[in-house]
Write a protein that binds this DNA or RNA. Structure first.
Lengths: 347, 347
DNA sequence: TCCCCCATTGATAGCGCTTCCAATGACCGT
DNA sequence: ACGGTCATTGGAAGCGCTATCAATGGGGGA
C-alpha cells in the first residue's frame, strides 16, 4: 500500500507532455487525437496506473452512467436472475448498476432511494409497486426514468413490468381444484405485498369455488426458509388433518412442505399435492418434481434495462410501451400429478 | 418527471438566506449552526426536496464513504449472509457498500476492480485469494485497505480472513472414513479456486487412507444447480456401482444427490451417505437431514467490515490482527448417520 | 471598562474532470 | 499566392460540494 495519491489526469498530461484536455479526449474519444499523442498518452496512463476518477467525471459531465436498482432480497435465485439480466443489458452499454438490498423493509427502501439519488443515477429500477408515499414522492420527482417491476397492480409511477400476483394465486388454486382437490391450504412466510396478493388470489378463488379456508392458512411473520415449510404444514395438519393440497407463497416453503411430507410418510401427490411459486431450479430435481408457478424474472429485468436505455439514448422520448404484464405459467409436475384415488383417511 | 434540475446547496442557501457553507454545515454538523438557521435551512431543504450530491461531496472532501465489495456469485445463501453482515457493520457507520457480482469470472473480476477503483472506495473486500496478477497489482497499489475473505491460502495482499478449504475437503473425507466408508465420491460443479482446494483436500485425504479415487470424481464445467447433483451421481454410479458415500462441493449438489438417491430408491445414509458444503438452511430440513461443512460466512463479513472501520478511523493504523482463520465445522446429520450394516450389494 | 475567547457565519479556493470555444497549422481549390 | 476548411490541440470556466481561514459579535474575566 503506497500512500501516494492516485494519479490524476493532470499527472498523465504532464508526463505525456500534453494538456489535460487532450488526455481526456484520448481516453474517451481516441479517434479525435493523433496517433502519436495517443500512444504517448496510453503509455503514461499505463506507467502511472491511471484510473479515471468516476466521481469527477460524473460531476463535470452530469452523466453518471449509473442505474440504481433496489431489490428486496438476495436470498433466493429470483433476484439473482433478475439482476443478471439487468446487468447483461446495462453493462455493455457502459452503465454501472448500483444495487441496494432492502431486505423487504419499507423503511430501508426509503433510505435506499434517498441514498441512491445522492449518486444521481440516470434511472432507477425498483421491485414492486408498493412503495411508501414518501418513496413514491421521491421517485416521482426524481426526474429520471423509473421502472417498477415484478408487479402490475395500481398506477405505475412511470414504466412498469410485472405480473398479476392475485391472478397467479387464484390460478394455483384453480390448478389444484381441477385436479379434484378441495381442502387446499396456503402457506406464507413474512409476506411482502406480492405474496399478500397471491394470498388474496387464493382466498378469492377458494371463495369462488365455495370452499372454506378455515384452518387452511399457515402464516409466519419470519422470513421464509425451507424448514418453515414443514412447520407451517404441521400447523395445518393439526387443524385440518385431511388437507389434500398445499399452495405455498414460494418454492422454499414448497420444498419444506415436501420434506415434511416425507418425514411423516405422507405421499406426494397422493396424500398431499404441492404447488410452489417462482419455479426455482430445484423444482425439477425434487422427488417428486415440484409443480410451481413460473415467472419471467429475466424478462422483467431485461425489459426494464432495455427500456431505460431506449429512453436515455432517445433523449427522453418515451418508448411506445410503458407497461407490460408478462404473466406467469404453472409448471405442472409430479407434486400435483393426477392421483388414482384418495389414498389416505376419509377416502 | 419534472425536467427541472435537482436543487443544489446554493439553491437551499438562497432560499434560506444564508451562505452555501452554512447549509453544508447545517446538514453535516447541525450542532455547529444556530438553532434558528438550522430550522430555516431544514425547511428550505424540505421545500426544495434537496438531496446532497454525493459525487460532489466526495470529490471535494476526498472521502467517498464507499466500500467496494466483490462477490463471485449471488445464487445461493452464502454471499447473502456474508453481504448482510458487511452491510450491518458498514451502513450504520455511514458507509455505502458497492457490490459487484463477477459470476466466478476472473476477467469480470479484473474489470470490476478497475470499475470500483474509479469510484475511489475507501476500502475493498474481495472474495478469495486467487485474483489474477493484474488484479493483485491493482489491489496492492490501490492505497486502501483490502480484505480478502473466504480463503486463507497463500500470501494475503493485506488483511485476510477465511478458512482452509483443502483442510475442509480432507475433513469431510475423514468424517466419512471414520463412519466406515471407503468408496467415497466427490462431486464438483464449475470449480472456483476454493472448490478446487476442497477437491484437492479430498484427493489428499483419500490418498492418505490409501484409497483410490478412480471413477469416484464427478465434475461438470457448468455452474452448479440442484439437478446437476443427480446427474453427477448418475455418472459415478455408472462407474462405481457400490459407491458408499458422496462429498459434494456445495449443498446444491448435495440436495440433488439426495433427490437422485430417492429417485433410485437408494437409502440415505444406509446405501449412500452424503456430505455437503456451506450448511445452507435446507440441510436441517431435508429428509434425512443433510450433513454439511459449515463455514462462518457472517463472521467473515463482519470481521472484514469491522477491520476496515478500525483502519479508516484509526487513520491508517493496522489492527493487531491482520489474518484470521475462522475454520469450519462438520455438522453431522442424518445423511451420514452411522448405519447398522452395509445394506446393499456386495455387503 | 477593556480585551480575549469562543461561537457562529461567510469568502475563497479548489477536488478532477468535461464542456465550450479559441487557436494553430496543414492542406485545398482557384 | 490567398482565403477557407478541417483536423488537432489547448485555455478557461465550472459541475456541486467541502476545507480552510477570515470576519463578526457577544460574553466573561481581570
Amino acid at each position: 500500500m503506497n500512500k501516494k495519491q492516485r494519479a490524476t489526469l493532470a499527472d498523465v498530461a504532464r508526463r505525456a507532455g500534453v494538456s489535460p484536455v487532450t488526455v481526456s479526449r484520448a481516453i474517451r474519444h481516441p479517434d479525435m487525437v493523433s496517433e502519436e499523442l495517443r500512444e504517448r498518452i496510453d503509455e503514461a496512463v499505463k506507467k502511472l496506473n491511471y484510473i479515471p476518477n468516476h466521481l469527477a467525471s460524473a460531476l463535470a459531465s452530469t452523466r453518471t452512467h449509473i442505474v440504481g436498482v433496489i431489490v428486496p432480497s438476495l436470498t433466493n435465485g429470483v433476484f439473482d436472475d433478475y439482476l443478471g439480466a439487468i446487468q447483461d443489458v446495462l453493462n455493455p452499454a457502459g452503465f454501472q448498476v448500483l444495487v441496494l438490498n432492502v431486505r423487504y423493509s419499507e423503511i430501508e427502501e426509503e433510505k435506499a432511494i434517498q441514498t441512491l439519488m445522492g449518486y444521481h443515477p440516470e434511472a432507477m429500477i425498483v421491485a414492486g409497486v408498493d412503495q411508501t408515499p414518501r418513496s413514491l414522492d421521491l421517485l416521482r420527482h426524481a426526474g429520471m426514468p423509473v421502472v417498477q417491476t415484478m408487479d402490475v397492480s395500481g398506477a405505475p409511477i412511470d414504466l412498469n413490468i410485472g405480473l398479476d400476483h392475485e391472478a397467479a394465486g387464484a390460478a394455483a388454486v384453480r390448478h389444484l381444484y381441477e385436479l379434484g382437490h378441495r381442502k387446499i391450504a396456503h402457506l406464507t412466510a413474512r409476506a411482502d405485498p406480492r405474496a399478500r396478493r397471491r394470498h388474496a388470489g387464493y382466498q378469492r378463488q377458494m371463495a369462488a369455488y365455495g370452499l372454506s379456508t378455515e384452518g387452511l392458512v399457515g402464516a409466519s411473520p419470519r422470513p421464509s426458509d425451507v424448514a418453515m415449510g414443514g412447520e407451517l404444514l404441521d400447523e395445518i395438519l393439526a387443524q385440518v388433518p385431511d388437507v389434500s393440497a398445499v399452495f405455498t407463497c414460494n418454492d422454499d416453503l414448497a420444498l419444506g412442505t415436501l420434506f415434511e411430507c416425507q418425514r411423516r410418510g405422507l405421499r406426494v401427490p397422493d396424500d398431499i399435492a404441492i404447488v410452489g411459486f417462482n419455479d426455482l431450479d430445484f423444482c425439477v430435481a425434487a422427488v417428486p418434481t415440484l409443480t410451481s408457478v413460473s415467472i419471467e424474472r429475466q424478462q422483467m429485468g431485461r425489459w426494464a434495462a432495455e427500456s431505460i436505455l431506449e429512453i436515455i439514448r432517445g433523449s427522453g422520448k418515451r418508448p411506445k410501451q410503458t407497461r407490460v404484464d408478462v404473466g406467469f405459467s404453472i409448471k405442472a409436475r409430479g407434486s400435483t400429478a393426477a392421483t388414482r384415488k384418495p389414498a389416505r383417511k376419509k377416502g
